[in-house]
């Protein structure tokens, strides 16, 4: 019978046509679940959009305590290659600008690991009341950002400084706050303010000097820290007597959303997370947490 073969040809033609005019990406993901769609719309119309996800555990908090720890690199420390200085070489070239994306100290401590609280709506100790209003400085100095990782509370203004004789611009790409890309002339100071906590650290760059990179962590609670050149961090006056969950982030973190894995004698870090309960007026020292090389992207 001739019919089927002819139809086959038509079919092939149809297929080609359809392929030719579609969008190029083929894998577009799953379909919506109709009942979830309906429920979300119904909730919105009923005006009770947000459900209550797990009441705050903070009621049981009693007193305050301190948490400290240290992150060490579990392998041969990687070399820090000098970055290629292609702009304003006369000035920037004087400074040996080294790669800062993974800095391991002489004792194996990993610098610039960020630890921040995941537990929502924590009680905040009064010692922070003044601190979170003080401006913090993000300096363009020696053709790099100082500090490399800046911690900011949403109540704090950020003073962007340019201590160099060359013009910089500081470009920060936020997800929840308005991004900015701010020219900063030599010896100038420009103030920026972020009103909303960011889920993840936001990358900072200077478009004039593409090797410059930094990070800004914006949170609406003060419980965050960044490790020093020996890999140490300390967070004081956290709510005691309740289990707190922290997130560990590094700019080269190979895990989801920059998370790292680590093993320690007090706690492990699993996909960037660990839990800890600090005793009242006490301290928890997490001691050394070893981050294997595979925790970092190459």
């Amino acid at each position: 019978m001739r019919c089927p073969s002819l139809m086959l040809v038509t079919c092939a033609a149809l297929l080609t046509t359809a392929v030719g005019c579609g969008d190029s990406s083929s894998d577009r993901g799953p379909r919506a679940k109709p009942e979830v769609v309906q429920n979300l719309r119904a909730r919105n119309q009923a005006g009770s959009a947000a459900g209550q996800s797990g009441g705050s555990s903070m009621d049981q908090a009693d007193g305050w305590g301190t948490i400290r720890g240290r992150f060490v690199y579990g392998g041969q420390p990687p070399a820090r290659p000098p970055l290629s200085v292609t702009k304003d070489v006369q000035f920037c070239g004087q400074h040996r600008v080294l790669d800062e994306s993974l800095v391991v100290g002489p004792d194996g401590g990993v610098k610039n690991v960020v630890v921040f609280l995941r537990t929502r709506d924590p009680k905040v100790h009064e010692s922070y009341a003044e601190k979170i209003k003080q401006p913090v400085v993000f300096d363009n100095r020696d053709c790099r950002f100082e500090p490399h990782v800046l911690l900011v509370h949403t109540s704090q203004p950020v003073e962007i400084l340019n201590s160099d004789p060359v013009g910089h611009n500081t470009s920060v790409q936020f997800q929840r706050n308005p991004s900015f890309s701010q020219g900063v002339a030599s010896n100038q100071r420009v103030v920026q303010k972020m009103d909303v906590a960011e889920t993840l650290p936001a990358p900072a760059a200077c478009n004039v000097h593409p090797w410059m990179g930094g990070w800004i962590v914006v949170k609406d609670n003060p419980y965050m820290a960044v490790t020093d050149e020996n890999g140490n961090f300390v967070i004081e006056n956290v709510p005691a007597g309740v289990e707190l969950e922290f997130q560990v982030w590094h700019e080269r973190g190979a895990g989801n959303q920059g998370s790292v894995d680590g093993t320690g004698s007090v706690t492990n870090v699993d996909r960037g997370r660990f839990k800890v309960t600090v005793p009242k007026d006490g301290e928890v020292d997490l001691k050394d947490i070893t981050l294997p090389p595979s925790s970092f992207r190459s």
Binding site: V36, N39, L40, R43, A49, A50, G51, Q52, S53, Q175, R176, V196, T199, L200, N256, Q257, R271, R273
Partner: peptide
């Protein structure tokens, strides 16, 4: 925003959490 929030919540997200995170994203 929602993808970042879902990943940050971690684990399979339930409808309540989804509605809450969605509202935050929509408001912003």
């Amino acid at each position: 925003q929602l993808m970042t929030a879902i990943e940050a919540v971690g684990g399979p997200i339930d409808e309540n959490q989804l509605a809450e995170e969605l509202q935050v994203a929509l408001d912003l």
